[in-house]
Nucleic acid binder design. Sequence first.
RNA 1: GCGAGCGUAGCCAAGUGGUUAAGGCAGUGGAUUGUGGUUCCACCAUUCGUGGGUUCGAGUCCCAUCGCUCGCCCCA
Length: 422
Amino acid sequence: MGLQAPRGTRDILPAERVYWQYLETTARQILDRAAYREICTPIFEYTSLFERGIGEATDIVSKEMYTFSDRAQRSLTLRPEGTAGVVRAYIEHGLHSQGGVQRLWYLGPMFRYERPQAGRYRQFHQLGVEVLGSADPRADAEVIAVALEILQALGLKELTLMLNSVGDREDRRAYRQALVDYLTPYTADLDPDSQDRLHRNPLRILDSKDPRTQAIVKEAPRLLDYLSPQSRHHFEQVQSLLQDLGIRYQINPALVRGLDYYTHTAFEFQDLSLGNEGTVCGGGRYDHLVEELGGPATPAIGWAMGLERLILLLRERPLPPRAEPYFYMVTRGEAAERQGLILAQQLRRQGYTVEVDLSGSAFAKQVKRADRVGATVCLVIGESEATERTVQVKWLASGEQVLVPQQELLGENWRSRFFASA
RNA sequence: GCGAGCGUAGCCAAGUGGUUAAGGCAGUGGAUUGUGGUUCCACCAUUCGUGGGUUCGAGUCCCAUCGCUCGCCCCA
């Protein structure tokens, strides 16, 4: 076993890829209907974009990035998430000047240097949306609704929406101080990670899993009590809109996103069947990021889904079966082989899927292979058919077989028959 | 980054120091040179992730290394 894909990376083979295709077409359709448009940004960016955007104190930036220098000594980083790049493109191309709200979505690989685990890789894939240019709570409700539509369309059932508000920058600053003031006397009782965060990133202490820390945090001041009237109003609006949409949620005051840029609404969808790695979609509002990166003041909100985890869930269920005929071309003898190749091409132009057997082995083997690949109809051209320009049409499921002139197959009569039997 | 377990063929595996490494699935060929899903037969690991060590002898013990899994951490 000399060759190995690098740690934390893996190949997605055709048998698994069909699940990815299903996921992508399902998501694409829902996003399209909600008027979101696809954007592609580079896989790597200047390192400073992520340092400024995500926050230098975050774990992602401080220890999980794939950073390298190119030949001209520029510091580049493989993107660890999608938002920073999309915002950079939004500013660079002046998308704000197109007026109105920009609804964007993206799908692609992201890179983080983490310990691999089930459903967690160093190269992983995210699907995400960003809505730029609206501070309206309806935008919050809309992106949450779109995420839910996608997750439900994929068949996820045990979904919980966790909701919180982290307030605006001023609210958070005040709260942060109150939290540090409260926690400082307990410093020695906190777990080491939390002690470390006390001055670097104290909000993250709220979702520590350490039991002693949790007990201390339980009595800590609550972020929700520090929200300004405006922040509180926004949060209440979002909740009321979700209720209008019939979307159930659970308020979780400890829900703190790992990236610095979030403001106001923070949310997560969790699927209970995934246990510890149950977060399947996470997002929130980031009203100052565009401005902080040098663009015009632009409120925004978005989310990202980790696709590996979704694929894990999808693979537990069978995919809807192919609803179109699949032809398998079986030939024998040089004349038949040539005719089979031509007929296959003609059938493909009619919109059929056709696989040509190239093995040159006995009929029995070829038909067996047709069966194996799940073909619906087997087309057989032997020596006598080649002379007559005919073809044996054999339905694999029933075994029924008829002899017809090759060109007749391309007509409309056969089309309806083939689709009916698929 | 920390703790634990694991690593035998494309896949699932038996094997717990003693001569030639079970079995199953898949694959290939044949029984059946013009027709599949059943059956039968044959073939399919000079080698046990990799490197080193202990031993008369190692897939089995030891060390290192790579990878995977689980938990922590982090996050999607």
